[in-house]
Design a protein around this nucleic acid. Structure first.
Lengths: 247, 247
DNA sequence: CGTACTATTGAAGTGTATCAACAGCTGTGG
DNA sequence: CCACAGCTGTTGATACACTTCAATAGTACG
């Protein structure tokens, strides 16, 4: 069943999860919860609600009370912070399938500190706050998993924070590129790994402007670290990127 | 029993905890663990080791394997990151009595991502990695507490990250001042709250240099937001600071 | 074929780092 | 007691990376 909704609002639509896996436990959105007892799992099953979003929609808005934890079934989303009234948006991270949204706010009983925007058409499952807290309390293994991912994410954004202090845009751009291809490497080791990402998105992640990113990339290609080719960025000299990312 | 140790190294010294509270549960370093069963508590008691540090000492160093979680009994410490070789140090946060150090690294099985330096003479208790993980696994309440503080701290440093992107040094300085006095307010509501902090330390927290902090503060005092008086900073116009912290 | 969006490139303006000099204060040792 | 070095804070001059504004080129799409 589909609905049309006024633009600007989010467009949540109840729907039946399209993946058969969802009934088994291989669904990415349920992976974290795979350690639950069948009883707990049944509870989440009853309370869970899947919703579909178009690309570029706002899923949750800054300062909204955190009534649920969202788990990403498919698609990628951005965590956005406004700093300085609504003058500038800053992307503090991106999340993908299997990741949870709103855990920090639900745990610390605060309203949402970020705005979550979809980057692609996405499907998200929501788990009500109370149900989530209950299963976390009841399942030490789940708590440990959450602690682990929270700890890891924390360290990542702390590294970003450190980088913002004294690193040039070129260095941060290089870091972004390295981070983006780091996962994809072992598979296609023969080919030069490529990144295809809008300058706008890169700028928000690096914490700068489209223009400066453009200049940075062209500087990097002049130096021979990357090759620019109709929109996509091919990493040529990995070692050079690492070197540049320290300046 | 005291030892002297070559300079440059940390100077851990076994000692008997000076506070009587330590045997009860009001010791700040044990507060987080107050929910443990007497059996678990006894285990930590056996494995815990208190150490004293002078001001300005390095407690744990970047890239050292995280073999233990430290809990702060007294004193304040800085979390420092190096970015760009060893060119620049960036302070990503400060911790005080009752706070834990190294939780993130122990949980995610990584070496230390930060260097911890004491700001004052401090006493820290160390809990070995395995013992810590065991009690967390066994005590859901402790896990929940850790999740909560991790979540809160995470949100705080994420806000800092967002601020670094497009906010001026003046704005970030104002934010720092507001944050510093926020805790102290209700007590001395009649007096203008004051901050006494070295420019160096402020600079590291704001992510800039001593000189720029100095100029920023003097600009703020010209505008009438603060008053500078033999080293300490008196907050005069709170609302103005809030306004400036948005630019 | 035009509209709209994204990417590129140029030129000007500015905030901040950097280098440097100096003042104030503290502790040290002759 | 003074002289000296060492540290912190202040202030000025300069350099530069980045933002901002603006114009142009490339690309997708109806």
């Amino acid at each position: 069943m589909w609905l049309t909704i006024a633009r600007g609002e989010c467009m949540p639509i109840r729907f039946r999860c399209p993946r058969q896996d969802c009934e088994q436990n291989s669904c990415p959105a349920k992976q974290v919860f795979s350690c639950l007892s069948s009883e707990q799992d049944a509870r989440l099953g009853r309370e869970r609600l899947a919703r579909r979003y178009d690309a570029g929609q706002v899923v949750v808005h800054l300062d909204t009370p955190a009534l649920a934890v969202l788990s990403i079934h498919s698609g990628r989303v951005q965590l956005v912070r406004q700093s300085g009234g609504d003058a500038h948006k800053v992307v503090v991270g991106t999340r993908g399938p299997g990741d949870l949204l709103g855990v920090r706010e639900v745990l610390s009983a605060m309203p949402y500190q970020v705005t979550v925007e979809t980057l692609e058409p996405s499907v998200l499952c929501s788990v009500p706050r109370e149900a989530f807290l209950d299963v976390v309390r009841d399942c030490p293994e789940l708590a440990m998993r959450l602690l682990k991912t929270l700890a890891r994410d924390f360290l990542v954004t702390e590294e970003q924070l450190a980088g913002r202090a004294h690193l040039s845009v070129a260095a941060r751009t290089a870091r972004l590129l390295v981070a983006l291809v780091d996962g994809h490497r072992p598979a296609a080791t023969a080919e030069a790994p490529a990144v295809s990402m809008s300058r706008e998105e890169m700028a928000l992640l690096v914490g700068t402007t489209r223009e400066t990113i453009s200049r940075s990339l062209h500087r990097l290609s002049e130096q021979g670290a990357v090759k620019l080719e109709n929109g996509s960025i091919h990493i040529v000299d990995d070692a050079m990127l690492e070197r540049i990312s320290e300046l």
